[in-house]
């Protein structure tokens, strides 16, 4: 039996069939030669996912390839980046396991379609941003409130290519969590400047971004 249950596979086949209008590539950066159970499970999960739809593919990358990491604007390992012809920086530092599996599925559906579920005023506000915005959403796999915050960050990046949205597994990247004083999740850091906690509504999230840009 694989990591994804048969019931979920059936659901995902239908979901991907309905949503994916274009090819979606999952880039998986791992430390080749130093694979842990953690990173091997991530790879296994991605292999099972891409087998569910012909529009999905997996490309394995090596974190030791500094040039490649730089060109993809990634700085932690392991990392999963979801790419397509649609603009957007949709990234996961660590494994999107537990409740975050939903975030990965939503990210794939978003990148493979034109889905956008943000209020119109928030979309307009996001379009006005003209400076780089880096959003880190620290999560734990057991946090049911976290996928909403991750989805907001990822969807923001679909609206404005200056925005980078990343999920960060707070327990795996312990040092980074300590650096940002993470003790409750979802904990969101914007441009390493503004910190806030909770799955706040998109409008409030946007206000925090604007605050970070002041």
């Amino acid at each position: 039996m694989g990591l994804i249950s048969e019931g979920d596979r059936e659901y995902l086949r239908e979901e991907f069939e309905r949503n994916l209008k274009r090819n979606v590539v999952l880039l998986y950066f791992e430390e080749k030669g130093k694979e842990s159970e953690y990173s091997l499970q991530a790879k296994e999960l991605l292999e099972e996912l891409v087998a569910l739809n012909n529009n999905l593919s997996l490309t394995l990358k090596n974190c030791d390839d500094a040039e490649e990491m730089k060109s993809e604007e990634l700085y932690l390992c392991p990392s999963i980046k979801v790419k397509s012809e649609r603009n957007g920086f949709v990234n996961f530092y660590g494994i999107p396991a537990g409740h975050e599996f939903t975030s990965l599925v939503e990210a794939i559906n978003d990148m493979g379609s034109d889905n956008l579920s943000l209020p119109a005023d928030v979309i307009e506000g996001l379009k006005e941003i003209d400076s780089p915005v880096d959003i880190k959403v620290f999560i734990t796999h057991s946090c049911p409130y976290c996928p909403g915050a991750v989805r907001n960050a990822h969807q923001f990046s679909l609206v404005n290519e200056k925005i980078r949205g990343s999920m960060v597994d707070a327990n795996y990247f312990e040092e980074l969590s300590k650096e940002h004083q993470v003790s409750s999740v979802p904990h969101i850091v914007v441009n390493d400047k503004i910190n806030f906690t909770g799955n706040v509504p998109p409008g409030m999230f946007l206000d925090k971004i604007k605050e970070a840009l002041k």
Partner: peptide
């Protein structure tokens, strides 16, 4: 490690 899917999209 578990993978929990929230099936929530609707058309």
């Amino acid at each position: 490690m578990q993978f929990s899917l929230s099936k929530k999209e609707s058309k």
